[in-house]
């Protein structure tokens, strides 16, 4: 090329050429979708409490039911369609965690139950569990040290 660009110049040039995500509308969509999922969670919790469960158990049941719904909607191929609209609104809630567990498992089915579904079920959720547990372990050490005094 006559007008040889360095890699850095080229990367800056393409940054200008590449359209940005429509961040404002994306945020509104994420807000609405995420908000609705949380309201559904709130409804389930309220219902559970009405049926006599304490706050903690009601919360746990809420998680289980939302995970179930997220898994089912993923199997029915509905969750990815909502996600296309909702972005982080469907990634961040616990239903998104369910989606990240189900989707690789579903796809890897063709490679068998153990090395397909079994191994791939953690491809996206694995890091979440690892770093979640690691963080809680560190927090545990902090709590334990505090408890010594």
């Amino acid at each position: 090329m006559k007008h040889e660009m360095t890699n850095q110049e080229y990367n800056e040039y393409i940054k200008k050429k590449t359209p940005n995500s429509k961040i404002f509308t994306n945020c509104i969509k994420a807000f609405i979708a995420g908000g609705i999922i949380c309201v559904i969670g709130q409804c389930i919790t309220a219902l559970m409490k009405k049926w006599g469960l304490n706050q903690e158990d009601a919360g746990t049941y809420t998680s289980i039911i939302l995970v179930f719904l997220g898994a089912l909607l993923t199997g029915l191929d509905i969750y990815p369609r909502i996600a296309k609209f909702a972005g982080a609104g469907t990634v961040v809630p616990i239903t998104g965690f369910a989606n990240s567990v189900v989707s690789p498992a579903l796809e890897a089915k063709t490679e068998g139950m153990v090395l397909g579904t079994g191994a791939k079920i953690f491809t996206i959720a694995g890091p979440v569990i690892l770093y979640g547990i690691l963080a809680s372990w560190l927090a545990g050490i902090v709590y334990w040290i505090i408890s010594l005094f």
């Binding site: 993923t74 990815p80 996600a83 989707s103 796809e107």
Partner: peptide, 17 residues
């Protein structure tokens, strides 16, 4: 998609590019 990106049923957004 399976080989290069995310599972088909994974709920993600594609960027404009």
């Amino acid at each position: 998609e399976k080989q290069f990106r995310n599972p088909l049923e994974y709920g993600g957004q594609r960027t404009p590019s």
